[in-house]
Write a protein that binds this DNA or RNA. Structure first.
Lengths: 137, 137
DNA sequence: TCGCAAACTTGACTCAGTCCAGATTTTGAC
DNA sequence: GTCAAAATCTGGACTGAGTCAAGTTTGCGA
């Protein structure tokens, strides 16, 4: 890695070749699983261990650079579209996941009427159904 | 099992002692995991295999008698409150799950503005946060 | 009461993810 | 430039939730 890159920091974390590659992989294929991301990264930089992928994904998610979504019955998926209030449509059949903007304009679902004493920091909305391809087949 | 019970059918499925016990266990402790339910059932009828618990939970969920919720990073949980449009508050720390009524009155979140060609059959809303107990500790 | 199908058990297996110990790389101080 | 400490990475063992498959038991209908 060049010195210029080595010094670079984003959100207070040093940028490494692996981290860059993971970020790029997630951009390239949003909603990919950790495994798929690892494969993609290997295509770009040659090799990376499974553990390193999990480390990087965990770190970047924690720092808010990535968002982890984890639909029922499917491994965790990652996307780089963070900060907005979009939701997801998931196909029960093939697991395909697509973004969908918030149903009620801006952040309506983000506030429960009764928080039961919880400190809420995120609302997650998942629409379950069957994708066009699976409807055809 | 008595003959009277043996003949009984609910939602077109024959009622067995195990199925009854599983239903009762889910009522007793909503949002319990399959493991917790198995333990509860064992307390009631003596023994049940893990597989039977999964079979029954799967069957009852499929028939709409139970609802399966599967928050990220936690095993699947089951509840017998079906048919309404309530959501869930989940503690990131201890996994505690509580019901919360729909934020926008009646079924607002149930319709995405753009369904991307999907046939949507369910909307799932999960509020993530920290429960009162974990806030204290 | 016989046979068949549904229900159940058992045990092996898969898959996603975590833990851990050791190796390597990077950073910062001298 | 060199060295030690910290951060990062690797590979392998392990865990937990869930599924699969094959065999056994149960009980209903003919």
């Amino acid at each position: 890695m060049s010195d210029a890159v080595r010094q670079l920091r984003i959100h207070d974390i040093p940028v490494t070749a692996q981290r860059l590659a993971v970020m790029r992989a997630v951009s390239r294929q949003p909603h990919a699983t950790a495994d798929a991301i690892a494969e993609d990264v290997r295509g770009e930089i040659g090799a990376i261990s499974r553990q390193a992928v999990y480390n990087v994904l965990g770190l970047l998610s924690e720092k808010g650079l990535l968002r982890r979504i984890q639909p029922a019955g499917s491994p965790a998926r990652y996307e780089d579209r963070t900060g907005d209030n979009h939701h997801h449509l998931v196909c029960r059949n093939c697991g395909k996941t697509v973004d969908v903007d918030c149903a009620v304009g801006h952040a309506p679902c983000l506030h429960a009427i009764d928080d039961a004493g919880f400190r809420i920091d995120e609302a997650e909305v998942v629409y379950w159904g069957t994708c066009p391809d699976c409807l055809k087949g």
